[in-house]
Design a protein around this nucleic acid. Structure first.
Lengths: 221, 221
DNA sequence: GATACCGCTTTGGTATCCCAAAATGGTATC
DNA sequence: GATACCATTTTGGGATACCAAAGCGGTATC
């Protein structure tokens, strides 16, 4: 694989994995040294990650995008629009087998599963569900939105019960979709996303002080 | 302004203005010479335009994205989702003054207005309407979708009557929005986008042979 | 005349160098 | 001790040099 894609992938993983904290300054030369590549692939990677919203410009220079609570709320609204649209499309030509695959993803998580895996599967549920719509743009929109939400969701304090409720909601959405009950599925998905947003923003707003103490820039709503 | 942004802007204009045809091959060195910049800003511009969907990779090497009828249909579905969501948000806090500004844009076009201007205003109507939602992500989604549609709409054969109908639909959408009648506004917007998509795809499919003869790659649905 | 093969050219990927501007840090001054 | 100022360093933007691989053309062979 080319260096360009390597630097991009590794840097993205470091940012999403919070190995580089939200708000931290980045220099092209540090990245260059860190990954053993020259500046050309480094700059390509930064340009890409900029369009994903993971890094941004800070005057001259680069910064890992801070967690922005106002932005998280806007993303949730955006998600609701595109995910519901995708789900309604899917309901019109529901494919039981494809839905089984997604349900199996949910089933693969139990109390022994590491939190990291729950986190990943929770995102993939929404992404794979959107993919079933067959609409590339709705799919990409959902995938990109989930990428932007990823770090915040990772910082969210979620108890066992909340995870269980989310999984139940996921299953209910799948069930309605399987039956082609578009309105029911859409209503449940909307509620799920709204609730998810409220818990997320509330949790981060409450932890804001602690997060900042850990060096994570969290911008208020 | 930096070279990087210059090359990006000029190259985008050449592509959107069809001075470089859909499907044409691009070499970094040709662009370099054409705009008097070195490969570093050229590369940055190509990476940016790639995320906008205006250029793509063709193995090694770059190609101006062809007009893809299947993609146009998918974009229309995507547009409908995000534009309707944005419009519903706007209806909840309709600002008469802001709507006046958009209506004035429509008014600025009359029979003496060059086709190019009608084209631009027709896009800006949707973009500015989405901006009123106050949701940055819905706004960007609409703006990016319109950018992707731009070349196709420019190739579309539109008679005076069709333009007049489109403008009437625009005004009706604004009127309903001003009154806060979200359902009515949403219904009219959906119909407008659907009709627009059908006319666009039909027109291009009919002209496909002629467009290809002009050197424009048009991929079937 | 078609085709397989070989060498030259072109091209994107990468590394490196240069430069102007911005950040940094130390110092002198009040 | 605070602050204004200047020298130095650092940094991103740009230009260029180099390389491997893909593309292209011509030629020899059947």
């Amino acid at each position: 694989m080319s260096q360009m894609q390597n630097v991009e992938r590794q840097l993205r993983e470091m940012i999403l994995g919070l190995e580089i904290g939200p708000g931290e300054k980045l220099t092209e030369r540090w990245i260059e040294g860190r990954f053993g590549a020259s500046r050309t692939p480094v700059r390509a990677a930064l340009l890409r990650l900029e369009t994903e919203g993971l890094v941004g410009r800070d005057g001259r220079g680069w910064t890992v995008s801070p967690i922005n609570l106002a932005e998280l709320e806007q993303i949730a609204v955006y998600r609701e629009a595109v995910e519901v649209a995708a789900l309604r499309l899917t309901c019109m030509h529901a494919d039981g087998n494809a839905i089984d695959v997604i349900e199996a993803m949910l089933d693969s998580c139990d109390q022994n599963t590491p939190r990291e895996e729950w986190h990943r599967v929770g995102m993939d549920f929404h992404i794979e569900l959107a993919r079933l719509s067959g609409n590339e743009f709705l799919f990409r929109a959902v995938r990109d939105a989930m990428t932007r939400l990823s770090r915040a969701r990772w910082l969210e304090v979620r108890d066992e019960a909340a995870l269980g409720r989310a999984w139940a909601e996921h299953r209910a959405i799948l069930a309605a979709t399987r039956l082609g009950e578009a309105d029911e599925a859409a209503r449940r998905l909307s509620a799920h996303i709204s609730g998810s947003r409220d818990r997320l923003v509330t949790s981060l707003a409450n932890d804001r002080r602690g997060l900042r103490a850990r060096g994570f820039a969290v911008v208020a709503a």
